[in-house]
Structures are given as C-alpha cells and as structure tokens.
Design a protein around this nucleic acid. Structure first.
Length: 181
DNA sequence: TACTGGATTCACT
DNA sequence: GTGAATCCAGTAA
C-alpha cells in the first residue's frame, strides 16, 4: 500500500475531499478507511472565512493535520489543502480496519458501528487530540492509497452553509459507517 | 476580563 | 424528537 505524499493535498479542496474517500488513515496500530468527508473553503460556514490563529493552518499549509475542539466535548480531524488558498477537508467517518479492540476500549462500546461513524467519534477511537495539530501528514497520522472502486455521493448540508459552489460533502454509497448527521 | 456560540454526541422521553 | 454536557477560540470592551 502506497503512502500519500503532500502533493496530493496541494489541489482543489473538493477534488481532495472526493479522492480521500477509500483512503486508509493509520495512527499507530489503529487504522480505518475514510468513508465520509466534508470540504471547507473560503466560505462563511468555515473557519477559513476569517484568518485567525486557529484557522491560520488552513491558509498557510497543505497536507497538514488540523485538529480543533468543539462543543466542549469533541475533537475534529481535518487535513489542510491548496497551496495558495485557504482550505481543509474534515474527516467525518471511517470504517474500522485494524486496532479495533483499542478503538472499543477508547470509545467504551462493543458496537463496531458506533466506533467511528462521526467526526467526534473517530478522533476518540484513533486517540487524536490537539497534540497532533499542525503536524505534517505522515508523521503520526499516515494516509495510504487503496485502489478500491465504489459509488460516491455528493451532497450539501442545507441550513449550515451559505457557500456558493455547493455541494461539498462526499460519502461512499451504502457504507454502514457513514454518519447520519 | 467576560461573554458567546459551535464542522457533536449521548441519554432520555 | 429533545435537551444537556462541556470548554475553547473569537470578539468586544
């Protein structure tokens, strides 16, 4: 399996979000296949809309890990994109592949479907916190190519984004780990 | 220094 | 279907 290099992320955010589907994320001995992503660009729904200390990574880097905390409870995992524009792809759901026992322990559940079917869940299962924020992809969080073919659905999150050029959410059709939100 | 709201999840009804 | 938990970054002062 081939590891993805930084150039993969130096492209249009929507293209990266779409092509990340089916790729493998590996952190230590825990890994999973990406089954749902969300593209964030320079729109009012995104942290990228205002350049702040937090969103600086989205402006200045590509192929880096961007982790932030929300709702007092949850971490969200993003990969930054595009060389000359702000952008990032939120990883919304994974299909667990290895290290499942450790994921169950971290998530405190035996239900495999509940391990990584949401943005906050998968970071917990993978042990991702802001200690990885700003790291280049490949250091601790690795992404591998996986030559699988599947049907991809594009959609939007109506009511949240007022961005143009929608849609910007992608998931693998029929995969049980796609989040319901 | 204080206030506000959020790229969510879970328990409960 | 509804609401609580929970805390950090951004903003205003």
């Amino acid at each position: 399996m081939k590891q993805i290099n930084q150039d993969f992320f130096a492209r249009n955010t929507l293209v990266v979000a779409k092509e990340l589907l089916g790729k493998i994320i590996k952190v230590g001995n825990v890994s999973g296949m990406i089954v749902e992503t969300e593209a964030y660009r320079d729109d009012p729904a995104s942290h990228a809309y205002n350049k702040t200390l937090r969103s600086k990574l989205m402006y200045d880097t590509w192929g880096h890990v961007y982790v932030y905390f929300i709702y007092g409870n949850h971490w969200c995992l993003n990969f930054t994109t595009e060389k000359n524009k702000p952008g990032a792809v939120l990883i919304r759901a994974l299909q667990p592949l290895s290290g499942i026992d450790l994921m169950k322990k971290r998530r405190k559940t035996e239900n495999i479907k509940q391990l990584t079917n949401g943005p906050g869940k998968l970071t917990q299962a993978l042990g991702i916190t802001n200690k990885f924020n700003g790291e280049v992809i490949g250091k601790h969080i690795k992404v591998f190519d996986n030559n699988l073919k599947f049907e991809i659905i594009q959609t939007t999150r109506i009511g949240i984004s007022v961005a143009k050029d929608l849609p910007w959410r992608f998931y693998i059709k029929g995969n049980p780990w796609v989040s319901k939100f």
